[in-house]
């Protein structure tokens, strides 16, 4: 009995340290490996195309003989850049819009939230494709596309939280104390929603990475030669059908493992915000 009770407690703790270690490793690799080993990841070697993993090429080579380990690391760097910047932009926009709607209430709230509903009613990959389609391929349109489609959920979360904080007596006390609407929002409401907004931002990073990969996989993201994880999986489709598994497997793992690790971190953070909520991985 005691054993079955202690088990659910032990698993999240293990996943916390494991996720933390994986996230730290991913960030360090993405930041420093390309700087410490400045090897050209675009170097083509047609004599060595589609080699399986070996000592020379631990992840093997792709269909034009480029080293897959090197390209995975560069792809991770680009994916993280897209994920982090897009999540930050989306969080800032979402928090501002949600706080505005929640703090003003009334008509402003209704109008803003109907706009949010309108955007949410379009599948966001479709909306994202629309955004990238308006620009030349490149990293900034991809970031803009992901950010513009992901502030909606943050706006909803922040608005709900602001609405619940707004009815607390300490807000009444601030009103009696002469605080302006602006001061109440900035000094009492926003600091109260920051933990939730931060959690939403962390959870958004892996989602944004998926989004970048999906856009690149559809051929709408980064230029085809660029070593992005989505581009690599896309390029590997043909060789997978021929039985060459490594050009698909390794970039795939580079998408999945950091995603799970960030989700694990965020899940334990959420449990700390609300100990009553069960831990589950949702993306």
């Amino acid at each position: 009995m005691a054993d079955t009770l202690s088990r659910p407690l032990r698993i999240p703790r293990l996943s916390l340290s494991l996720s933390g270690a994986v996230v730290a490793a991913v960030v360090l690799v993405a930041l420093f490996v390309p700087v410490l080993f400045p090897v050209d990841e675009q170097a083509v070697d047609l004599a060595a195309k589609l080699r399986p993993p070996s000592w020379d090429h631990p992840f093997g080579t792709d269909e034009v003989g480029r080293d897959l380990l090197l390209r995975c690391v560069h792809g991770l760097r680009i994916s993280l850049l897209v994920g982090v910047v897009a999540a930050l932009v989306a969080t800032v926009v979402g928090t501002a819009v949600g706080a505005l709607a929640g703090a003003l209430g009334g008509w402003a709230d209704r109008v803003v939230m109907r706009v949010v509903d309108l955007f949410s009613s379009v599948p966001h990959l479709l909306l994202g494709i629309f955004v990238v389609a308006m620009f030349r391929p490149g990293i900034w349109p991809v970031i803009a596309s992901v950010a513009l489609t992901h502030w909606l959920s943050t706006a909803r979360i922040v608005r709900a939280e602001v609405l619940s904080l707004r009815s607390r007596p300490y807000i009444d006390a601030a009103v009696v104390g002469g605080a302006s609407r602006w001061r109440v929002t900035v000094r009492h409401l926003l600091p109260g929603v920051l933990p939730q907004a931060g959690l939403a931002a962390v959870l958004m990073v892996p989602h944004a990475i998926w989004h970048e990969s999906a856009l690149s996989f559809l051929g709408l993201g980064l230029p085809a030669h660029q070593a992005s994880l989505g581009n690599m999986v896309q390029a590997a489709r043909g060789s997978l059908l021929a039985g060459d598994w490594w050009p698909t497997l390794f970039p795939g793992l580079f998408i999945i493992v950091p995603t799970l690790a960030v989700a694990g971190l965020a899940a334990s953070w959420r449990d700390r915000l609300n100990p009553r909520r069960r831990s589950e991985l949702t993306l």
Binding site: R168, P169, Y170, D172, A174, R187, H188, G192
Partner: peptide
Amino acid sequence: PRLSADPR
């Protein structure tokens, strides 16, 4: 008092 003080 718990609810009328900003916890931060």
